[in-house]
């Protein structure tokens, strides 16, 4: 079963820190968004492996968008 990593904010994707296939633990930063002039880290909510990334650096995202999945 895979779990989505959802965007906590409306913003843009500033820096993607993990690649598909990387192992992550809860609390690891998957990517950094920019919102309200700040760098907002998006952390893994689950232990596992990055199964997919659905955004690229520079993309605009809305709150609740799936940014990646962890399997």
């Amino acid at each position: 079963m895979s779990n989505p990593v959802e965007s906590p904010v409306v913003g843009t994707v500033w820096k993607i820190e993990k690649a598909v296939g990387d192992t992550v633990e809860i609390g690891d930063v998957v990517m950094i968004l920019e919102s309200m002039k700040m760098e907002i880290p998006v952390e893994a909510d689950d232990d596992g492996t990055i199964e997919s990334l659905s955004v690229s650096e520079g993309d605009s995202v809305s709150e609740g968008d799936t940014l990646a999945t962890i399997a």
Binding site: P8, V9, V10, S35, M36, K37, M38, I40, P41
Partner: peptide, 8 residues
């Protein structure tokens, strides 16, 4: 909580 909209 600055992790969410910098606290906005």
């Amino acid at each position: 909580d600055s992790y969410h909209y910098g606290g906005g």
